[in-house]
Design a protein around this nucleic acid. Structure first.
Length: 435
RNA sequence: GACCCCUUCGUCUAGCGGUUAGGACACAUCCCUUUCACGGAUGCGACACGAGUUCGAUUCUCGUAGGGGUCGCCA
């Protein structure tokens, strides 16, 4: 039975690297019917916070990485907060002490006597990596205040929680021999490791908090991304599924996941490609689904939604023009208010030719006579007006767009007119001619 | 400083001794088009360097350079 875990330390927001580590563990568990455990490594009381822990859970849930054991999920190997497992660590430390593998410093810190033998890490990604007998000082297991150090609790919990595989960042590879030394000291079999490459900034430097795309909540949840898109993109960073396309569903990704295919070289983060994935997922959303995810971003920009059907249709009309949900408000704001601002170049274009006012008034006259108000009837009215004026409809459409939206880009003019209604359409044209 | 991992277009990558070195994103051009987009087509563009091994190296070996990581009483 496969058991894997994601073991974050709640010192800050969920990082994109952590999110991907959790993602690979999750894929592995789901593919092989294993158990995905979430363990909070909060042994450093000075740096850990409850908010950070909650933030991590929130981020994981948003990404759709559900855990089978852990906080809020329970399980037979809890508690899943290391801060609540002190008695277990005390018992394990006692075993080491009984075997003469530890010694106490003057100030009370407890150290582990390394075996100082060559240790080989059999890694699913990096292959066999052998570390020569170490010359490093013995490592500390317990601080003078009685609290435990990461390496120790990490190993003890992996033994206690019966982990079979450990997918973690490559930054841990250099320390893995220490963990194996500990497993050996306990007479336990180490799990199979898979150290995944790190995610770097676009310039190749180390990605850390504050860098673009580094924080799940700030960059993605609040940045207008869809969970599926982020999930898909992160999979492509360090792993190439054997498929002929890159856009793949969660189900497909789970089915395709193969640990040995994970790359061993670091990957640079590319926000443009991540956004491209988002655009792809955005476009396949239904009007209702798109409106549901876009709504918070609309309201955040102060747009007041009075008619949900119209609002949903308005949002849907621009779905192929945006990549991120955060871009939607600027594309649809005029659907929600009459006092929209005319963009500078629009005003310029409207005033460029004196006859524009007459053209708009002619269009308004034709529009005013329509007894039913559909996209087709709007189209008909504009064509009639154009015919009367001996111009092409194409000469009228841009002007109407400027008048109805104050912008030079957007959905089809007939779509805009239909959605805002006949009265508003006529009022907006009048307002534009008065500029 | 020591040790570990890594190195194909700008980016993510395919490739597992013989290929016109393929794809995706980005970028450029064209088509479509009432705008902006979408979509379609085309183009631009890479094997870090140096030795070996071999009939033949992007591919195997070694070295160099470069990037990343670890060496905490952080995780």
């Amino acid at each position: 039975m496969i058991r894997v875990r994601f073991a974050p330390s709640p010192t800050g927001d969920l990082h994109v690297g952590g999110g991907r580590t959790a993602l690979f563990n999750w894929l592995f568990a789901r593919k092989f019917g294993g158990t995905f455990i979430l363990r909070i490594e909060d042994t450093d009381g000075a740096r850990n916070t409850e908010e950070a822990a909650q933030g991590i859970l929130k981020g994981l849930r948003w990404m759709g990485l559900d855990w089978d054991e852990g906080p809020d999920a329970g399980g037979s190997y809890g508690p899943y907060f290391q801060s609540q497992r002190k008695s277990i660590y005390d018992a394990y430390l006692a075993r080491l002490e009984a075997d003469g593998r530890t010694y106490v410093e003057d100030n009370g810190a407890v150290r582990f006597k390394f075996s100082r033998t060559a240790i080989t890490v059999n890694d699913l990604v990096c292959g066999d990596v052998t570390f020569a007998p170490t010359e490093e000082p013995d490592m500390t297991l317990r601080r003078p205040d009685g609290s435990y150090i990461f390496h120790f609790v990490n190993v003890v919990d992996d033994i206690e929680m019966k982990m079979t595989h450990v997918f973690r960042g490559e930054d841990h590879l250099s320390n893995t021999w220490k963990h194996i030394d500990l497993f050996n000291a306990f007479g336990a079999t180490p799990p199979t490791y898979a150290h995944i490459p790190l995610i770097l900034n676009s310039d190749g430097s180390k990605m850390s908090k504050r860098d673009e795309g580094s924080a799940i909540e700030k960059s993605y949840m609040n940045g207008g991304f869809l969970p599926d898109a982020v999930f898909n993109y992160l999979c492509m960073l360090g792993w190439t599924p054997r498929a002929d396309v890159e856009k793949l569903s969660r189900e497909a990704l789970v089915a395709l996941f193969e640990p040995s295919e994970i790359h061993s070289s670091n990957a640079r983060f590319d926000m443009a490609k991540c956004s491209w994935f988002n655009a792809q997922y955005l476009r396949e959303l239904s009007p209702e689904a798109l409106f549901a995810v876009a709504r918070p971003f609309l309201e955040k920009e102060g747009l007041v939604i009075t008619d949900e059907a119209v609002a949903a249709a308005a949002v849907y009309s621009v779905k192929e023009k945006v990549s991120l949900l955060t871009e939607i408000p600027s594309w649809v704001h005029y659907f929600f208010r009459e006092d929209y601002v005319f963009e500078a170049d629009v005003v310029t274009k409207l005033k460029a030719k004196p006859e524009n006012v007459a053209l708009l008034q002619a269009a308004a006259s034709a529009l005013a006579t329509q007894t039913e108000w559909t996209e087709a009837s709007v189209q008909t009215a504009v064509e009639e007006a154009a015919k009367t004026l001996s111009v092409k409809p194409g000469a009228l459409m841009p002007l109407l767009r400027f008048a109805l939206s104050g912008q030079s880009r957007g959905p089809g003019v007939t779509t805009i007119a239909h959605l805002i209604g006949q009265a508003s359409t006529l009022k907006r044209i009048e307002r534009a001619t008065a500029l």
